[in-house]
Amino acid sequence: MSAVTADRVRAALADVCDPELPVSVVDLGLIRGIDVDGGAVTVRMTFTSIACPCTEVLKEDVAAAVGALDGVTAALVEEVFEPWSRADLTDEGRLILRALAVV
């Protein structure tokens, strides 16, 4: 069994996309911290807007993606209510959103 690391968790999250956009939660800049304690993982995340109707779906998807990792025994998502702006997008995220004329 491979050790659980924040890098492995982050790599798994790169496959979790916003249900409305083909952009991952990592490229959207929603992931604000990853704590690993043995097999227990806590992902701290925020959302683009508090009016976002996708928060529950995204939290479930993040927890499921992390929970599916080899070695993870518990996956928790904590919403941190930090502000979000376009500056939080990665270059990749900005590129995709620009192609879709969202930003």
Binding site: S49, I50, A51, C52, P53, T55, E79, F81
Partner: peptide
């Protein structure tokens, strides 16, 4: 519809 989601979202922030 957008404004209504905003208000429900604001409530959603306070309950936890």
């Amino acid at each position: 519809a957008a404004i209504a989601q905003g208000h429900m979202g604001q409530a959603r922030v306070l309950y936890p």
